[in-house]
Amino acid sequence: MVDLGLKDKLSDEELVILTIEDQENFVYLINRYQDKLIRYIRRISGLGFEDAEDLLQEVFIKIYQNINNFDKDLKFSSWAYRIAHNEVIDNYRKKQARPQEMTYDSEQILNNIVADSDINKDIDHKYLQANISQVLNNLDLKYREVLILKFLEEKEYKEISDILKKPMGTIATLISRAKKQFLKELQEQEIKL
């Protein structure tokens, strides 16, 4: 039996092994990932909190049901995000609903994109803060999602590749196109760049 205090210090992968042995240990993984995953679900789906919470529960149930399929070559977080991504897509298809308006951290996403691009950093922040959600919500889901993973979730290319199950080259192309579409969208909204 592993000491309870010690379990918080175990790696995700060790917790997976313990969860297979004893269902109760799953609570450590839930506690570790619930905030991250609900934030991610809300960011890509635009769902309200209660709907996102329902989806989050479905995600954790899927994670538990498929825990024997966890690939140890992956990070657990990538695997969990992948399942969350799939659940959001399934939910989106089932309900055929457009994502709702979502509030994003404009400064974080913009600073990260600006740092990654050759554009003027003298940006009309107030205007941007008010319109960033509209800009992001106007992007295609595939572009919005890679931007969120790269610039809000701050995932590496390999992690994004593992989450979205696309080759690294495709991820690089998607991010590049998403940035272009994001900046174009900013210009169309007449945000000073």
């Binding site: 269902q23 109760e24 799953f26 609570v27 839930i30 506690n31 619930q34 905030d35 609900i38 934030r39 960011r43 309200g48 909190f49 209660e50 919470e53 989050l56 529960q57 954790f60 149930i61 538990y64 509030t103 994003y104 951290d105 404009s106 400064e107 974080q108 809000l152």
Partner: peptide, 26 residues
């Protein structure tokens, strides 16, 4: 991080609740 789960707090949801709910379901 300006993105906050304010409505999480307003809904009175605690980590314990969601963990317990999931554990109950599984």
């Amino acid at each position: 991080m300006k993105y906050m789960l304010k409505d999480k707090i307003s809904n009175g949801m605690s980590e314990k609740n969601i963990s317990q709910e999931i554990l109950d379901k599984i």
